[in-house]
Nucleic acid binder design. Structure first.
Lengths: 337, 337
DNA sequence: ATGTGACAGGCAAACGATTGCGGAAAATGC
DNA sequence: GCATTTTCCGCAATCGTTTGCCTGTCACAT
């Protein structure tokens, strides 16, 4: 039942010429005469010949595939980033292998291993929240597989990365709250692993300093991003004698969970408590009480930028050139509703 | 600078034995003596040998890769489905190539083409809303690449598919509305291409018939899933002399758009107009006015089921067996808030 | 007639791993 | 001690394509 797909050898056999001639003819190599070239192309078209990519991958040591490892696809931030990645990849005739770590280190490692086995030409990654070390990524250097981190970038030297400048917009966000009369502003941060390079917190601090506001350490709490973790963090804030009037929170999803919980607790949003957040995901448009402002992180652009960087690295590798470590920082923007 | 990865040949050279012996030793072939086997495994471990998968892919005519083509990743329905697909794939040591059609036929075709070139072992697809013909999928038969459709299944014979029984729950949804006193129930359907096998509409009709309610054709409108399309459809319903009191609508995203628009028009949700929908995506939990009920379509389970079916097909192909066309229908469930 | 060069195309190796077949050496049988 | 079986391993082909190098055939100039 199996239909044999036509090969170069088959074409060569039928035309009584050699396989190398066929190959060159199909590639418009100058040393092939017009007559034979035409004959080859004609027969190739008739047989519906298509080169066996796996053979080419094998020979060329290239798979025209990039691997993408990220925490999940549920968050619109990541699915938007994929759009950028996919668009650039498609332009380069590449295709994307995908894997979700679900914020689990072991799974992330397994995915990287699997992508290495598949000999991807490069990897784009946003690390899981439980990624405490990045040995599995560093290993890729041994296989000459370039890795570009985006958004969730590990705090390490000698890596390539694309991320957003959250420092400036964090300052801006807090200043905006201060300008609106808030004096006790809480900071609900993510898990420690994602805080290594804590631009959000640094900006939070800077804004306080700039406006000569003391920072109350008890206003700084953190969540593991789970609903329960967020609720616990929120509870600890509400138990304070002097409650905050506003919360700057890790991202929109955490914020939505917090708002949902606050309403269960009979708090009035934007009166008892205000929220400012990060990500500015479109779904917040549909909710009743969205955060008052959110920092747009341009996931599509981050995806595009990361992929373009990756292709530069792949090209350099092909050309056997050294590539300096690049850490691209894109602008973010505080969007006020 | 390039580190040569160790190969079987390299091990053979160092041990002064043949490559075939090394290969067999690593595979615990019985005809290899214990001494040589040990020596090979020891050296392989020292050199950190790992088989070149691309060579194996090429030789075995298998890539241990499945392709996944779907409209988009933004909708939680699809990202949830991917979770199921990825989990099953991982169990089988497979990895997933992903591509978004963005509801564009040309792009879908290009993705299929690309996946074919990469010689994926199988394809799982949910068709785009502009997919008027499925020739590009049918082509895959020539390459012996099995295709399983899920959720958005084309209305064609000789295909494999996994979908949800939307007929029963559509009946149930309409009956629920009737029971709650609604007599004029509109039906906001998707674009024609996705309505070939219109279980939603059939269920809508059946419920009316069952309850001896006449169907008013002007209450049946459709959207191309865009915000504007949905608004236009909604407008046409509101222009009727006898407006509907409830709308059964294609999916939660369309519904959210419609609700958003209705509120702009100063309509009071659940009083002037009620909504019942499909998909039951989690994000509706966060919105102020979610649909009153939504049909859960169990995307994770659909993903699992589709992938398991695909692996059965791949196995049969490997065993050179015929596989009858399977069309699996899973249960859906009306979730009332 | 000889040399020079351009042109057209073939040979064979290579990429890395797998596998049918065959054969030498060692172990066993009688 | 010779035949036979078993154990262990190598040879070579194969998958489909690419590519460096070589060869043969003309045409043209000298």
């Amino acid at each position: 039942m199996e239909k044999k797909l036509p090969t170069i050898k088959e074409i060569a056999r039928r035309l009584n010429i050699s396989a190398s001639t066929v190959s060159r003819a199909l590639h418009d190599h100058p040393s092939i005469g017009l007559r034979t070239k035409m004959a080859v192309k004609k027969l190739a078209a008739e047989l519906n010949y298509e080169p066996n990519q796996t053979a080419i991958f094998f020979k060329q040591r290239k798979t025209f595939t990039i691997g993408l490892v990220l925490p999940n696809l549920r968050e619109e931030f990541f699915s938007a980033a994929i759009n950028g990645i996919e668009d650039v990849a498609m332009d380069h005739n590449y295709i994307v292998l995908i894997g979700q770590s679900h914020d689990d280190l072991a799974r992330e490692q397994k995915l990287i291993e699997s992508m290495k086995n598949h000999r991807v030409d490069g990897i784009i990654a946003s690390i899981s929240s439980s990624t405490t070390h990045i040995g599995h990524f560093e290993q890729m250097k041994n296989y000459e597989i370039p890795v570009v981190f985006f958004d969730r970038v590990p705090d390490a030297k000698d890596i390539h990365s694309v991320s957003c400048n959250l420092y400036d917009s964090s300052v801006e966000a807090v200043e905006w709250l201060i300008k609106n009369g808030h004096k006790r502003i809480a900071f609900l941060q993510g898990p420690p692993t994602l805080n290594m390079k804590n631009e959000r917190l640094d900006g939070y601090m800077e804004a306080h300093k700039k406006h000569k506001l003391a920072v109350d350490e008890s206003l700084i709490v953190s969540t593991d991003l789970s609903v329960e973790g967020t609720q616990k963090a929120f509870d600890s804030l509400m138990l304070l004698k002097k409650r905050p009037t506003a919360i700057l929170s890790f991202n929109d999803y955490v914020t939505l969970d917090a708002i949902h919980y606050a309403r269960q607790k009979k708090l009035t949003i934007n009166k008892d408590i205000c929220f400012v957040s990060y990500a500015n995901v479109p779904v917040t448009q549909y909710v009743e009480y969205p955060p008052l402002a959110s920092v747009e992180q341009f996931p599509y652009d981050q995806g595009v930028s990361a992929t373009e960087l990756l292709f530069r690295l792949i090209d350099k590798k092909t050309a056997r050139q050294e590539a300096p470590y690049e850490n691209i920082v894109l602008k973010s923007e505080l969007i006020i509703r």
